[in-house]
Amino acid sequence: MTDLLALDFMRQALLAALLAGFAAPLVGVFLVQRRMSLIGDGMGHVALAGVAVGVLTGQAPVLTALVAAVAAAVAIELIRASGRTSGDTALAVMFYGGIALGVVLIARSSAGTPANLTGYLFGAILTTSTTDIAVFAALAAVVLVTTLLLRPRFFAVANDEDYARAVGIPVLRYNVLLAVLTAVTVVVSMRVVGLLLISALMILPNAASQLFARSFRSAMWWAVVIGVLCSVGGVVVSYGAETPSGGTIVLLAVAAFLLASTVTALGTRARRAAHDRAERHDHEHGPGCGHPALGHEGHVDYLHDGHRHAAHEGHYDEHGRHTTVEGR
């Protein structure tokens, strides 16, 4: 690891990976919550057109990509908010138009080589320049601060738009802002992960953490941990194995998801085998239900006809006769 850090370009690549791995899952959790897991993919398509314009005109591709992705983000939310049935096809036209325009323009430009295009699409650690890193760091800071400050409001809007509107939260503004943050994250991650794979880094760490976390908050932070481990780990592996960084990172994220789903499935099976259900209830236990509440290993049991009943999902678990529990 220390010899990796001695290389200038590797230091930059690892820093870029750290930023992308932190920001992408943080924004991604709200996309998962809104059931818009694939929207980052579409923004990546449009961002390629922006990259191409930059390459063709000699502007910094990062900035032109940013402009294209943000414009796409605003357009996506306005089209969705209009609620027209043609909105879905309008998005398809925009996304495919974007990527096609990008491919054609890059091929026409003097600097356009197939390797160049592949780097943008699938990530290339060697291409990250010092100025790029400075821009990425600034953008990532904006994404992190905004998302963390507004997390409760993004959660409220994604959880229940009607309620949010009824209590006076400007729903459309928050949705547009989330889309813009998604677009910025796409651009921050494009060098490391690539425009075609960026959506995976937003979604897969969240898909994995949703399997085992017990609250929104813990699921979000676990996703950030998984995202950082996969993106930094992916860059290190891709250097050693001489593979494209984007693909390597995403394969690690897929592995994390499969690992999480296997472990949680086994855990669920073990727990199911280990607990007894109480008889069916016509009655709900709770404060004031008339049954004495007893503390029991960190949860509450209700004493029902001499048996301890503990709430578990939609039913009650049988935690044994009161006296036998005492004797344990």
Binding site: F155, A158, N159, A166, S215
Partner: peptide
């Protein structure tokens, strides 16, 4: 808006992501 408490008609709470009872109720304070 806070003078009116709205309880919308929903058959279940969104199950797309995990959220605890407290996390949902905290939204009411926003």
């Amino acid at each position: 808006h806070t003078r009116i408490g709205y309880v919308p008609q929903r058959h279940s709470l969104s199950a797309s992501v995990r959220a605890t009872v407290t996390e949902i109720v905290e939204v009411g304070r926003l």
